[in-house]
């Protein structure tokens, strides 16, 4: 294993013991996040079909919309991976470029999600409409709030990278942000599959 020593080679974010522990700690946090989303998915699954007088998901969900959001977030996860790849090659310019592309795709996703929520509200499906729509908006809204937080985090990090350049601290912070961003896509894969796709077939 990595041991307790300070390293002089390898990726910047793993050089110090503290930074290695920070990355491990963030993985533990992501484990807790999975448990959080599991409770929301469970609530959604239990309340599935309890739409009362509100429209049903089959009436409102549209494949082009769901696929567009999926591709935006999936591509942003990919570009974020490329950003970390550039960081490990020591290229600050490459890192910033791909991070900004990631940010733009994330904003695109968020824009579509807000449009989607407004559209559903116009069709008569809001948080108050029925048990089903409450669980839907809490589940997708919690994910959307995470994306919003990730975007703010990335903006702050880009400012810091521009001011301080690439060092052990900024590399570790960027790597952790990368983990968070990929994790948002992991959650979205399950949202797309079990909410949108299953909502269209059942």
């Amino acid at each position: 294993m990595s041991g307790h020593s300070e390293l002089t080679t390898g990726p910047l974010e793993y050089r110090s013991h503290e930074d290695r522990m920070t990355v491990l700690g963030f993985w533990l946090f992501l484990g807790a996040e999975i448990a959080l989303f599991a409770t929301l998915f469970a609530t959604y699954a239990v309340l599935f079909g309890r739409t009362a007088d509100a429209p049903t998901p089959q009436e409102l969900f549209e494949m082009p919309m769901a696929l567009t959001m999926t591709f935006l977030l999936l591509t942003s996860s990919f570009t974020c991976g490329i950003a970390i790849h550039e960081m490990r090659r020591g290229s600050l310019k490459g890192l910033l470029t791909w991070l900004i592309i990631t940010l733009a795709l994330g904003l695109g996703f968020l824009g579509f999600e807000i449009y989607e929520f407004v559209h559903y509200a116009h069709e008569g499906a809001t948080l108050q409409s029925s048990a089903y729509w409450s669980s839907f908006f809490v589940l997708t809204g919690t994910h959307g709030a995470h994306v919003t937080l990730g975007i703010c985090w990335a903006v702050l990090l880009i400012i810091q990278l521009k001011k301080r350049g690439l060092n052990q601290m900024t590399a570790r912070k960027t790597f952790v942000l990368g983990l968070y961003w990929h994790f948002l896509d992991v959650i979205w894969i399950f949202l797309f599959t079990s909410v949108y796709l299953i909502g269209m077939v059942v």
């Binding site: 294993m1 990595s2 793993y14 290695r20 990355v23 491990l24 993985w27 533990l28 992501l30 484990g31 807790a32 999975i34 448990a35 989303f37 599991a38 409770t39 998915f41 469970a42 699954a45």
Partner: peptide, 22 residues
């Protein structure tokens, strides 16, 4: 990478918890 075995164990545990909850 690095603390990989702990991280893999933690993710498997999280997926197990998620499956049990849902």
């Amino acid at each position: 990478e690095k603390n990989g075995s702990i991280q893999v164990g933690n993710m498997l545990h999280a997926f197990f918890i998620a499956a049990v909850i849902i």
